[in-house]
Design a protein around this nucleic acid. Structure first.
Lengths: 209, 209
DNA sequence: CCTACCGATCGGTAGG
DNA sequence: CCTACCGATCGGTAGG
């Protein structure tokens, strides 16, 4: 009825606000989000915007949550049908580099931008992001470990190092493409990722050359 | 005399302002710099701060210049005595990873932070940073090319890909250390870098595994 | 969800 | 280099 409908409307307004906040943050960082600007862009009042969250900090936390959900949906979920280990990792790399090269935000991956911005700061927003990134690193490392244990990757492979390398290669696509005049960054990333996961019995830290 | 002395004083004040601006930007990005905050931190008036630069944009440009100078002094200059090619690249990687793991700023490498922040934006500050990064990428790639031409690195090596990989590995030290609970990031970066430049005749994109 | 408002801070300038 | 000031915008609240 009326109550149900208004709850639904409120939820969709909240989502509209968060999508806009994520778009802004992808370009200028979470610090670029402002209540007044969101209100102007969305044709709302400032109190209408912040009323959904209570404070700027809560809005930033919700933006991080949305960014994490979108990342999971576009990079991890579609790779899940693949068998565990090397094959799943190869699929993750494909979806991940495609996501980074053609991001669902105007300014590139929101998580990558926020990571560099929040790395040196402290507080709840830092902690929230750190939780997601630590989880992702462990997910990747666990997948590598599975590959090693099932002889899909060389026994000398260090799961944490490979997870680190994959993360580094993807998060540099944004800066390389837009700042270092390296438009082919996404291709180079994919080449390097597949070399790391070549699985021809060589040690993964051979694959980078 | 008095004139000379005042010029010198002004220059040293300008440098104090820029050092502080660089420290702030390394933590919060160039957007975190504010004239009022610099004035408070340095016990000056706001007009005393901005008078040295004319505008916020000029202050940010000067901060980028300082960051580039510091990077060159700590990473490139000390590697120059090494012979061109693979040996010089190995030295660059040592200085670079040490600089990234133990940066001369409270918030990590200023250039890395500003790169992610400015990648999606446009304007003079973006252009200034892009110039430095493009130059650095070309410097690295040229050094790799020299190594290939002198049989220090495998003939199949792609200089641009190797330059991309080295840049990616170092710029992720900051986020991995502070957000992904990977305190050994600097070691992993160095391991991967040396693998890329192993020079044992294998293709560099073998080195990553 | 709105209007109307709060104190604080923003970049920048005038005048000295 | 300073004080004093400008209009604009910040996050947030009161009251409806």
């Amino acid at each position: 009825m009326a109550g149900r409908r208004s709850v639904e409307v409120a939820r969709s307004t909240r989502e509209r606000i968060l999508r806009k906040a994520a778009d802004i943050a992808s370009v200028e960082g979470l610090g670029g989000i402002s209540i007044g600007r969101l209100a102007t862009d969305l044709d709302m009042s400032k109190s209408g915007v912040i009323g959904h969250f209570g404070s700027m900090e809560e809005l930033q936390l919700a933006t991080i949550d949305l960014g994490s959900e979108i990342f999971k949906r576009l990079v991890w979920d579609p790779a899940l049908p693949e068998p565990s280990g090397r094959q799943r990792l190869l699929a993750v790399c494909d979806y991940w580099s495609a996501y980074s090269a053609n991001p669902p935000y105007p300014g590139g991956c929101l998580i990558a931008t926020a990571s560099m911005e929040l790395a040196g700061q402290s507080g709840p927003v830092h902690e929230r992001l750190a939780g997601y990134l630590t989880l992702w690193h462990r997910t990747l490392a666990a997948e590598v470990r599975y590959g090693v244990e099932h002889a899909q990757l060389a026994a000398s492979t260090d799961p944490d190092t490979v997870a680190y390398i994959l993360q580094a290669l993807t998060s540099s696509i944004k800066t390389a493409t837009h700042l270092s005049a390296v438009p082919e960054a996404a291709d180079r990333c994919r080449t390097a990722m597949r070399a790391v996961l070549a699985g021809d019995g060589a040690d993964p830290t051979d694959g980078l050359r």
